[in-house]
């Protein structure tokens, strides 16, 4: 049963917190205008759980520029970043808690690196995965492939007790991705433009 909540930007952090606390797979659909607001809320939320194991998959922005204002997050060794675009974009600053994927089309490598990141971590700790964003993968891959990737990924994270938050940007969303997001999420948060 999927619950869909329409929400405004105010109180987004709480909405996310609520959704994540009870659901293993949460999808967030957001207009591109509000993307940075959402990221802020997410980071604030991550900051409230510094002891959990976080894996942050970025296909949207290079790792370096993503966290300009959140240096405490970058330096938290409990957060592992998987950066799929820096290498493809020719940016080659290496960071110890960041794994670089050659290209966003290496979906199998992404899967492997995500699951590897949780290996050898404390079993008692809560485990989270943020996908930023599912819709960006479609820029680099055919939609059916992304669908298959996402299916594999959520199947595996469920087995390993990993809570996932999958972002999608509304403008990038096509039918294939919408369908699979609805199918594989326990809860969808759909953000309305804040000026409404």
């Amino acid at each position: 049963m999927i619950l869909i909540t329409n929400t405004l930007i105010d109180g987004l952090k709480e909405r996310i917190a609520n959704a994540v606390s009870t659901n293993q797979s949460t999808g967030i659909i957001i207009p591109s205008n509000n993307y940075s607001d959402l990221i802020c809320s997410l980071f604030e939320y991550m900051d409230t759980k510094p002891d959990a194991i976080w894996v942050y998959l970025t296909i949207t922005k290079p790792f370096e520029s993503l966290f300009d204002d959140y240096s405490n997050l970058i330096n938290n060794q409990n957060i592992i970043f998987i950066d799929c675009i820096s290498h493809a974009a020719g940016i080659s600053k290496e960071k110890s808690n960041c794994i670089y994927i050659e290209s966003p089309s290496q979906l199998e490598s992404i899967l492997l690196e995500i699951m590897n990141s949780y290996k050898n971590t404390d079993d008692k700790k809560n485990k989270y995965l943020i996908i930023d964003s599912l819709s960006s993968l479609v820029i680099y891959n055919d939609a059916p492939l992304v669908t298959e990737f996402f299916t594999h990924l959520i199947n595996r994270t469920r087995l390993s007790d990993i809570t996932t938050i999958s972002l999608t940007i509304e403008e990038e969303l096509n039918d294939n991705i919408r369908k699979i997001l609805y199918l594989k999420s326990d809860k969808i948060i759909k953000l309305k433009e804040s000026f409404i």
Partner: peptide, 9 residues
């Protein structure tokens, strides 16, 4: 490291 190949592609 091995993982199933995504076939749609």
């Amino acid at each position: 490291e091995l993982t199933p190949l995504l076939k749609s592609g």
